[in-house]
Amino acid sequence: MSFVIAPLDVIKIRLQLQIHSLSDPLSVRDVNGPVYKGTLGTLKQILREEGVTGLWKGNIPAELMYLAYGSIQFSAYTYMSHILEGVPAPYTPHNSAISFISGATAGAAATAATYPLDLLRTRFAAQGKDRVYTSIIASVKHIAQHEGPKGFFRGLGAGVSQIVPYMGLFFASYESLKPVMADSPIPLPLGSSDAVAGVVASVLSKTAVYPLDTTRKRLQVQGPLRDRYVHRNIPTYTGVISTITRIWKHEGRRGLYRGLTVSLLKAAPASAVTMWTYERAMGIMLALDEKSAGV
């Protein structure tokens, strides 16, 4: 799945890192890097300037990240849900609260554990025709040597600040929407209430926290090689609040939401497949548990 959506990731990252806008002619003056306009425009420009392989830059760390992230996320979600459901009455949290807390905890744990891979994916996707890093091993060595251990976790604050409300809102929305979708009198387009609920929950939660995702990407490409990425005019950012403030001041609301459309195109189907698979897997495991208990 991640291999298929990799081009959307690259397009999203390129748009998020772009500080200039075609609506403001002064912002593109003396810009050495490309000026992207929209999802299709960015796709065409990458193909023209970098070839097909340009759309899969950073795919290897992305594949590793998705594999690790998914297993950690759902393990943590299930574990935390069981703990909260076991709280004795009258202190047992409401179902929506259990979903929110479990989702937020799972997201934070998975994000922190896989963050170095996310950072590598961003840096490789931000490379243009001129390669900044020749390989994953070379990138790890260079970051460790010139930026230290902290270099692998640039923007982690924005990542956790984003993922905690995102996963909390996602799972709370999903659990609320699932029974509604199951009782829908209208035939569902994806053939499953789980998949449709996953799509809607993903769109709502992703849109709500997207500025923090843009902030994370801007912080991830900070470092000694910042001016060698495809956008050679990326400013120096230091913290989450100051980055958001600076983007808002110099680029407006558009700057915080660049790439949102392609992000939703990527996240919605991925969430549909993920939640459909999750529900089926949980159903199989519960059936096996009941069968074992009966024996």
Rank of each mutant, 00 (worst) to 15 (best):
L117V: 14
G148K: 00
A126D: 02
L119S: 11
A138F: 02
V132C: 14
A113N: 06
I136H: 11
F124M: 11
K141G: 02
F124K: 10
V132E: 06
Q127E: 15
A126F: 10
D130G: 12
Y115C: 03
D118E: 09
R121N: 11
T114G: 13
A125Y: 07
Q127P: 11
E147Y: 06
S139N: 08
I143N: 04
I137K: 12
G128E: 00
Q127L: 12
K129E: 08
A113S: 13
H146N: 11
G148A: 08
L120I: 12
H146R: 14
G155C: 02
Y115A: 02
L120W: 08
G128N: 02
R154C: 10
L156R: 06
F153T: 03
I143K: 00
E147M: 15
R154T: 09
R121G: 06
Y115F: 15
V132F: 03
K129H: 01
I136R: 12
R154W: 01
P149E: 14
I136L: 13
D130C: 09
T134C: 10
S139M: 06
K129D: 04
E147K: 03
Q145S: 11
I143A: 03
R154H: 10
D130S: 15
A113W: 08
P149S: 04
F152K: 13
G128W: 00
Q127G: 05
T122W: 06
